[in-house]
Each structure stands twice: as structure tokens, then as C-alpha cells.
Design a protein around this nucleic acid. Structure first.
Lengths: 192, 192
DNA sequence: AGATCATTTCAGAATATTTTGAAACGAACC
DNA sequence: GGTTCGTTTCAAAATATTCTGAAATGATCT
């Protein structure tokens, strides 16, 4: 029965390279589904996933073919990833093309994403909250005191979140979870 | 000069209710911009913001008018918020309409969002990663060892994130930042 | 300079997401 | 039973987002 080329129609045991490719492909897909969670487009996430899981630098053409996207899209996607700081340029001797490599440490990737999202989303939010708070700050009317309390709660929340992220961003990989998150300004009650 | 009704054409000092309305409106807008960060639609975020900042229960009609959305949209949005657990139903005596109130504690809101997103996004991701890992688990080929290492790093990362979120979700508000985040399984190197 | 190859740009096309509005449904009253 | 008022549903419309592809730009070589 068992032969070097079995006639079994349904793939019985794919060769190692095939399994690797399939694993890579599925990883790219899975990571692409998380795109929303990271606040990037699906293609950005897929491109990043490909660069991460292969570990190798790739150029625009590689992306075009493996992700089946247009040249323009590949260019824009890589530029956006560069802008986020999720990939870096790599030059290859004797090759005119530009290559891109993804950061290989997952904790650094997380810190990069936290930093960018805090900058792009949290900071403007904090600014808005402060402005809004000023609208009713000098008002002693009863109807606004409740409103102000709610606004202040949100403001404190956003501020703590900002500080927490700041700590994570500044920490180095191994201490991130340990040191960075401790004593981040939790709203503790008693003093002693 | 100063009179009970000054003639100045450009609004010099809006009455307190006006400033309150404006503050509410701007808060709703600001919160709506964070919609992407929470993984909900802009309208869901705006509706939640309105219910939060006013502190009062509102019905479908209130939402329609204050948010200028259709009846159908208001219904779907409220149902989605209920589904997320971000609002609760409130019944008013002698009123057929259903009212909805937003959770007032911001840390509880955060925990709710973390719980839902972990369930909807992280859990499927973890499942996928395990499946993918199995594709090349029994493979001793050199090309797959690097791949497996990267996949394992990602798997460990996602697992820790899941545990961390779990702790936050289970913690009660005041201890969330303090106790929940400490000792969450950080990848420490040396033992001593 | 001119030739060649890589990259960027961006208006229009393709997709995906969100919203509408009217009809169907349901629940509370008479 | 029927009527009224409120809610839900969902196909079609409106919007928003992402992608394409070809032309423009830039970069490197002879």
C-alpha cells in the first residue's frame, strides 16, 4: 500500500514545505482578522504578519504576489507600516529594491502599537475632555455638578490610562508586565 | 451697562443650560471618535456617551432626536449596547416605552469592553494560533524550527494577554489596577 | 544626458459598513 | 375581538473605507 507516490486522491501527508506555507498563510489570515483590534487596515495587518512569521525581509513585489494586492496598495501599506514603526527598511547589496523587516519581539510590537494609538487616539481625546470640562468649570448650578462629576471621572480614567500606556511604552520588554504596570496611579482609597 | 438682558449680539455668556447642552454634545462627539478604539460603531459609542453623560435613562425616541438617527438605527444600536452589556433596561411606571441607562462607573465600563473584546476577538485568535501551531508541531525540519519559535512567541504573548484581561475582568473596580495586573505571568528571565 | 527600474500618487472603482424607512410583529389596553 | 403604541426586522440606499492601475516621480546606472 504505502509507496513513494501513493495514489490516494485526498492529500495524505503534505511535504514539510507545504505545511510551512499553509501555516504561514493561516497565520497571515488570523492576524489579518485582528486588524480592527490594532486599529490598522486588514492589509496592513496581513503584511505585518507575513513579515513577522517569515522572519525574512521582503520587498514590494513579494507582498504584491503573496498577498495578491496591487503595486500601489503594497507601496501604501508598507509606508503606513513604516510610519507606525512596525517595520524597518533593509538594504540588500546589489539590489535596487527596498526590503522591509518586521520587528521580531512581540512585546516591542505591542509597545509600538500602544504608543501610536495613544498618540493618535487617546491624546486628542484627553484634549477634548479638558476643553469640555472648561465649559462648565465655573458653574455652581446644581444641574452641572453631576455632569461635572461624571466628566471628572472620565477625565481621571483617561489620564490614568495615558500614564499606564506611557509606562508600558517606556519599559523594556522583559520588565513591561512586571514593573511598568505596578503603581500606575490606581485610585486607591486609604493612605497607609 | 450690565443689565438683565444685554444687547450684545455675539453670545457673551450663554446661560447655564446652554453650556450644559453644549458640553454634552461635545462629549458625545468626542466619545464617538473613540468608537474604533472600543470596537463598536460610531453611533453605538455616541449613544453610550449620551446615556453616560446625562446619567438619565433614555428611550428610543430620545436617542432618535438627540442623535438624529432613524428609528431602526436607534433600536439596533440600543440592542447592540444591551448585548455588549454596556446599558441596562429600565422600566418606568405608567410608561410603555423602554428606557436604557448606561453603567456609571468607568472602570466597570472598561471591564465590560475588555470582556467582550476578549471573547469576540482574542479567543478566536488563540484558537487559530493553536491550530496553526499543530500544523508544524511534529516537524523536525530545520526550516520550521524558526517558524515554530515565532509562532510560540506569539502564542505565549496572546495567552498572557488573555490571562491579564481575565484578571481585570474579574477584579472589582478599586483593585483593578493594583492587584489584577500584578503577577500576571510576565516572561521573567532569571529565577532569583 | 538618457535609459532603466523602483516607488509613489491619487482619481476612480470596488468593497465593506452603516443607516434608513416602511412593513411586520408584539404587547398592552379597551 | 380590535385598536393603539412601541419595537424589531431587513432589503435597499447612503456612506465610508480600501484598493487598483496607470501615470508621474525618483533613483541608479552607463
Amino acid at each position: 500500500m504505502a509507496a513513494t507516490r501513493p495514489k490516494t486522491p485526498a492529500t495524505p501527508e503534505p511535504a514539510a514545505p507545504d505545511r510551512l506555507s499553509e501555516a504561514q498563510e493561516r497565520f497571515v489570515q488570523a492576524w489579518g482578522q485582528m486588524a480592527g483590534a490594532w486599529g490598522v487596515t486588514r492589509t496592513m495587518a496581513e503584511a505585518h504578519a507575513l513579515l513577522y512569521i517569515t522572519g525574512e525581509p521582503h520587498n514590494s513585489d513579494d507582498l504584491m504576489h503573496r498577498l495578491r494586492i496591487s503595486r500601489g496598495n503594497a507601496s501604501m501599506t508598507l509606508r503606513a507600516l513604516l510610519d507606525w514603526g512596525l517595520v524597518t527598511k533593509v538594504h540588500k547589496r546589489g539590489d535596487r529594491k527596498e526590503y522591509f523587516r518586521a520587528e521580531q519581539d512581540v512585546w516591542t510590537v505591542l509597545r509600538t502599537i500602544l504608543r501610536e494609538r495613544a498618540k493618535r487616539e487617546l491624546a486628542p481625546m484627553l484634549a477634548s475632555l479638558h476643553e469640555i470640562r472648561d465649559l462648565t468649570s465655573d458653574d455652581a448650578d446644581t444641574p452641572t455638578t453631576d455632569h461635572n462629576a461624571r466628566l471628572d471621572a472620565m477625565l481621571e480614567f483617561a489620564t490614568i490610562a495615558d500614564e499606564l500606556i506611557q509606562r508600558c511604552v517606556e519599559a523594556d520588554a522583559p520588565t513591561m508586565l512586571g514593573d511598568a504596570l505596578v503603581g500606575a496611579g490606581a485610585p486607591r482609597e486609604g493612605p497607609a
